[in-house]
Design a protein around this nucleic acid. Structure first.
Lengths: 217, 217
DNA sequence: GGTCCCGCGATCCTATAGGATATTGGATTT
DNA sequence: AAATCCAATATCCTATAGGATCGCGGGACC
């Protein structure tokens, strides 16, 4: 019986939801820059590489296209979306400023103790990747703490692009960001909605200023 | 040359992006309640009905799933999402209140004359469907007027669900809504951002109150 | 009468073949 | 030498067939 599995072990395992699995795999490859922005992605190459048929690849790429991570040109194949330019960065942070401060306020008002424990942990990152993961987790937990699935989903989608942008420039670990996170966490633990909202707004504005310097076109 | 086209005229026309065309078709069927909520949707039925292969159907359904209009259960086929319940309606309008007033302010500050002419026209709907289309167009133009693609896309996605919900209950034409629209349009034409933002907020809150009465579970 | 087993239908998933199209490289012309 | 045209290639898009899996209903057994 091990003979049956030994082939599929390295490939994608679960037969439950193959397209979903492929979707996560490709999304992870895009976020880790293993597939850099503006890179062509062919269907049958992926099919050979992952050891599955073309159908789940197509479904996964369609989902990625709906989420804005790849774009399809007729009879020319898929390609990862190009890196954000200045205008897109502005739009993204304008959107975040509308949503995330409100999410922080609601999280402060209604978050339970169990989730707060998770929020407080995992603060202390040394490498670039660890910091990026920690930041993603931090904002994700607050978005979920707001108790609104639309808010959580929208912010998750946006943070993917923030992650890619930051990874492109291998930006140094911002010591300030950790302190700003601590301010927000303290306000949430104190159930102080107004302070949490203000701290989050300040954090996003400073984060925007830090990232904006990397772009000059 | 007309002989070449006469067959394809009634079917799906553009050979550029079959999956895209199928996507729009199914989305239109869902929005018109031709596919009611919580209805099973089989791939090959659609393939036979639309006269195309299964592959573009799958891609279209994957995109619809990413947009939250259908859901897939493993080896059980696709189904249209169930009608919104009370909690989802609350979440949706909480989100709209975060975004749309800001969009109205920005539209008032930066909208050009040409778009305003379009905005002012098309006000005067008699039937249910005509009112629904007019309302959709109204909010879509303001969202685009804000000059932020993320805002426009998010609101477009949300308004689909509002449209479906309203269609489910065949809600009467709200005379008030037209007046509220007029207030917003007047503020935008006067480039009065603060007034436009307040008018939009008021409009959404009243719209929420009107729709909320239809749900009691 | 209740519970378990089994076959049937529906659906998804995979594989392969063939037609259509955009991109790329080289040859030709100005 | 630069621009243009054309053919070759790679890729996508579609269609069809076959294997695998899940849910449901009828019948047998306790």
């Amino acid at each position: 019986m091990s003979a049956v599995n030994e082939v599929a072990d390295k490939a994608i395992a679960r037969p439950s939801g193959l397209a979903e699995e492929v979707y996560r795999r490709i999304r992870a490859d895009i976020m880790s820059l293993r597939l850099p922005p503006d890179t062509r992605v062919s269907v049958d190459s992926l099919a050979r590489e992952l050891g599955v048929s073309q159908t789940p690849i197509r479904e996964a790429l369609s989902m990625l296209e709906a989420n804005g991570l790849v774009s399809k040109r007729h009879f020319a194949g898929y390609a990862t979306s190009p890196r954000m330019d200045r205008a897109q960065l502005d739009e993204l942070f304008e959107f975040r400023l509308l949503i995330e401060p409100h999410a922080a306020r609601k999280a402060a008002e209604s978050m339970k103790g169990a989730d707060m424990a998770i929020l407080a942990s995992g603060e202390g990152a040394t490498s670039h990747d660890a910091f990026a993961d920690m930041d993603t987790q931090f904002h994700k937990l607050i978005a979920q703490g707001a108790g609104n699935h639309l808010i959580a989903d929208s912010l998750a989608r946006l943070h993917i692009h923030v992650h890619i942008f930051r990874s492109c420039f291998r930006s140094e670990i911002a010591e300030e960001a950790v302190h700003e996170h601590d301010d927000i966490i303290a306000a949430i633990r104190a159930h102080d909605g107004a302070t949490a909202e203000a701290a989050m707004r300040s954090h996003i504005e400073r984060s925007y200023a830090r990232l904006r310097d990397f772009i000059r076109d």
